[in-house]
């Protein structure tokens, strides 16, 4: 009886020790992986930041203007180029009702063509 209990206890101890050993190493591995991923994320972030900065360098208005002056035949916008929807309907020459709505910063418009 005692022998059986002792053997069982020894077996349980051994199994527990083995399991614990493996779990510990697994945890260490995972911790290493977490650290690696963290470093990876940090370096990706830094990379993204560098790219963002570069994007802003490339899109800097002064640079865009220089390039536009050099390669494009664009001019500054003139106030006459901006028209309202009402003026559009005059141009279309029809009696559409034009509706413009403003929700926060977005303008939306719709043209209802009357039934012919």
């Amino acid at each position: 009886m005692f022998r059986f209990i002792n053997l069982a206890a020894i077996a349980i101890t051994l199994i527990a020790a083995i399991v614990l050993f493996r779990v510990k190493y697994e945890a260490t591995d995972f911790a290493g992986e977490v650290a690696k991923l963290r470093t990876g994320i940090a370096s990706e972030r830094a990379q993204i930041n560098v790219l963002k900065a570069e994007w802003n360098f490339l899109n800097e208005p002064r640079r865009i203007q220089r390039l536009a002056d050099q390669y494009l035949d664009l001019q500054n916008m003139d106030a006459h180029q901006i028209v309202t929807f009402q003026e559009l309907s005059a141009r279309l020459g029809r009696q559409e009702s034009i509706r413009v709505e403003r929700s926060s910063d977005e303008f939306t418009g719709s043209i209802n063509t009357p039934e012919q």
């Binding site: 500054n76 916008m77 003139d78 106030a79 006459h80 901006i82 309202t84 009402q86 003026e87 005059a90 141009r91």
Partner: peptide, 26 residues
């Protein structure tokens, strides 16, 4: 002339009659 369109200032032309056909030329 450059910044007003950027700032979203609506242009208006006092001398321009909206319903007149003359504006189509512009």
């Amino acid at each position: 002339a450059r910044i007003a369109p950027m700032l979203g200032v609506t242009p208006s032309f006092d001398d321009r009659n909206i319903s007149a056909g003359a504006i189509l030329a512009s």
